[in-house]
Write a protein that binds this DNA or RNA. Structure first.
Lengths: 126, 126
DNA sequence: CCTCAAAATGATAATTATTACTATTATTGT
DNA sequence: ACAATAATAGTAATAATTATCATTTTGAGG
């Protein structure tokens, strides 16, 4: 994997954006700093970075993929009203790989949990 | 919600298909019995049935939505080689809603776990 | 510091999954 | 049987993502 200015910018931008953005959201953000990057480059690099474990790709929240600069184990909660994504700490359910393997014999290489609900902000409003 | 022959057929077909099919897979299956149903009808009804809790919509496995006739609490494992989806029993991690609420204050209304790995069949082959 | 092969890019076309639209048909309560 | 309402088939439209490809950038070796 060779260096590229664009990839560095994408990674830096993701780290500055703690909202778990989609590729398109991150693209819009990046355009402000560097208006020549291509949407395809953003998609390409986010997937590449995810394959290499440098970022996390989160699927199953709302149909579109989100990206997370935090790579340590943790889960996610999406507010079904405002769409905001929150982190859920790993220790609410640690070591599920082992639990699954014990019960089913299936060897888990990765997994995600997508929690859904209404966040505290939206709950207040209504 | 009025009765419709097509919806009944869709539900019946899903129950006969324990492979957690996508809308399109189920559509192909249904065509053999009833060649006049529309793909749109399959999508419409699967979503409708899911909203009413009669089937489960599974997202986050591989980018496309799968459907499950089993409505009781359980999780899923997808083989990243052959794409087959397996059930994972609920008791490997029960009552996560409460765990999340205790730790974060967020009220969970639903959640899914998508486990990934290589299934036992694929493991044998390679 | 040149050269060149490999990798990355931007721009856009293509694909895939899903939803929207609309005229027609089926269902159901009266 | 009638009318109101919901559902359908068929297709167009949309949204998200990936593929393509000509051009540019990177980095290792002479």
């Amino acid at each position: 994997m060779k260096y590229s200015r664009q990839r560095e910018l994408i990674l830096k931008s993701l780290r500055e954006n703690c909202i778990h953005p989609t590729a398109e959201q991150l693209y819009d953000f990046i355009l402000q700093e560097e208006p020549t990057v291509s949407l395809a480059t953003v998609y390409r690099n986010l997937n590449l970075l995810a394959e290499n474990g440098m970022v996390k790709k989160i699927e199953g929240l709302d149909g579109t993929a989100h990206f997370d600069h935090q790579t340590h184990d943790h889960y996610h909660f999406i507010c079904t009203r405002c769409g905001q994504v929150f982190d859920v700490p790993y220790d609410i359910a640690p070591d599920l790989e082992t639990a699954v393997e014990k019960q089913t014999g299936l060897k888990v290489t990765s997994y995600d949990i997508a929690f859904r609900g209404i966040c505290q902000n939206c709950r207040k409003i209504n």
